[in-house]
Write a protein that binds this DNA or RNA. Sequence first.
DNA 1: AAAGCACGCAACCGCACTCGA
DNA 2: TTCGAGTGCGGTTGCGTGCTT
Length: 287
Amino acid sequence: MGRAPCCEKMGLKRGPWTPEEDRILINYIQLYGHGNWRALPKQAGLLRCGKSCRLRWINYLRPDIKRGNFTREEEDTIIKLHEMLGNRWSAIAARLPGRTDNEIKNVWHTHLKKRLKQNDSTHCSGTITKQQQRRRGTVHLPDKFNQEESKADPDHHQSLNLSDNYNTTTESEEGTEYRPISPQQCSSDDTTSSVTTSDTTNNNMDMSSSYMKVEPSSNNDDNEFPDMDESFWSEVLSADNSRMGTDLPQVGSNPQLLLANSNLYDSMDFWYNLFTRAEELPELPDI
DNA sequence: AAAGCACGCAACCGCACTCGA
DNA sequence: TTCGAGTGCGGTTGCGTGCTT
């Protein structure tokens, strides 16, 4: 069993990922998939090791990642599963759609262990402090990205499309969050904000991007969209197969079409139709 | 106002496992 | 059967952020 050479020795980059690197990785995987993680960075033109790319994709960039706070139910589930399975984070994650083993591990070490301790000693309600609430709310973008990029390009969210795997605000739109679009967003447990789903041409939807604005306090229909699990992409392809025999073009099986229609894939309506009304799939635009 | 501290999260490390040659 | 490449997984670390003193 050979060990992969250290990234640093190979002259590869380490540390936080930039939005540009994210964009390259997403585009590459959308086009070619990730059959070989070791070869991927070289082929994609990334100065990263395959391991780093894999981790970034699995823990952050996958379209089916559910971001935001863990609900009380999710936390309880984790506690129960941890009782049964121990530190088998990947096994626990498999039962929590949209959550990654890394995320669950972090939550366990930062919140749940303490909560259990508290419960053991005082049987208190497990309420969290203001500070904990704040910290649990969002994934924060390292300042060097947040500040430099918004300074350099106020429309960065639109032009790069990837400035936010993180929630950010711009000076001009105080209070507006940008979040990555995924079908999970539609069933997000985040009750402090909601996604505008009404119209794909709505100004709140940046159609050129995988990211959208989130209005702080509009109505949210938690039940409108289904949750997705690990088989997300295979379901995408499977649903795409339902287009066979119709006039609708196949997309998921054709990387060129997939990329060309990526705008459509970013549309809430599209995902909604894909998973709930496959027989009424919207027609894809011609390339 | 500034330094110290605690917290949370993303990313890294290194071992283990699987699979094909 | 052995060996190496590729990947999965759990533990750990580094760093940004905000609170406390």
